[in-house]
Design a protein around this nucleic acid. Structure first.
Lengths: 128, 128
DNA sequence: CTTGACCTTCCAGTGACTGGAACCCTTATG
DNA sequence: CATAAGGGTTCCAGTCACTGGAAGGTCAAG
């Protein structure tokens, strides 16, 4: 399987797949002409990575998760720890965004949005 | 006012203030010894920027907002347009994070987190 | 034989800083 | 007067996870 097929089946851009090889997440072999060749295993890993990334795991966490996946004698506690840390990070971000949303929503609501210069949004920014 | 005083009053790191000068958001003058000197106006701009950034506006939007703030003949509609676009972006991110949170929360909940290898989190990542 | 679609590597850029090195200026102290 | 501490300065590199683009090799079809 060459890179564009893999790109199609995994949904990952070819550039991203090359990048994952560069940072050592996958190790495709090479054909005689220098083209990357992807085994079932590599494609499987890439699907794993795509899924983990879509859940927002940082690439380095994905590396750890892949290693745990490969380790038959892993403890599920180790996996859960990574996932819980990520969950906390997500919650932190949601809280931050929600606070922004609330404030900004109020400001936008209060702004007439017409041709006059008077603007509560700018007023808030200027006066805190 | 020198940079560390400004840093203290605005809450912005000195590095960030220098960066804002570099990209042309502020233009402090210089004392004879080369030190930056900040007027009331510059400090006010920095407070504006700090507030806008804390609401998550990208730096380029902050530049536009500052320009509108300076323009006495602005239309509040122009401000509102920027704010609404940002609001949509925030909502998009919240939706994305919430979807992640829901999925990941379920997986974490289903994982025993003990010394056994069996793990629904890895299972999900491997099987989509 | 050429065309077009593949593939390769390498370099630069993204956003918004942040860390660190190397060096200058000012003031207080021994 | 020397020096040390605590300001300030510039410039370069690194962050994260790609992404765009240039320059060029490879391959199958017509």
């Amino acid at each position: 399987m060459n890179i564009s097929n893999v790109s199609d089946t995994t949904g990952l851009p070819a550039k991203t797949i090359r990048y994952y090889e560069e940072i050592g997440l996958i190790t495709p072999t090479r054909a005689a002409n220098g083209y990357r060749t992807f085994s079932e295993t590599e494609v499987h890993k890439l699907n794993f990575l795509a899924r983990a990334r879509s859940l927002g795991f940082p690439v380095e966490s994905c590396r750890s998760l892949l290693a745990l996946y490969d380790d038959q004698s892993r403890a599920s506690a180790d996996v859960k720890e990574i996932a819980e840390a990520h969950l906390e990070e997500i919650d932190r971000k949601i809280a931050e965004l929600t606070a922004m949303r609330d404030t900004l929503g109020d400001l936008v609501h209060a702004c007439a949005g017409d041709s006059r210069p008077d603007c509560p949004i700018l007023k808030d920014l200027a006066e805190g």
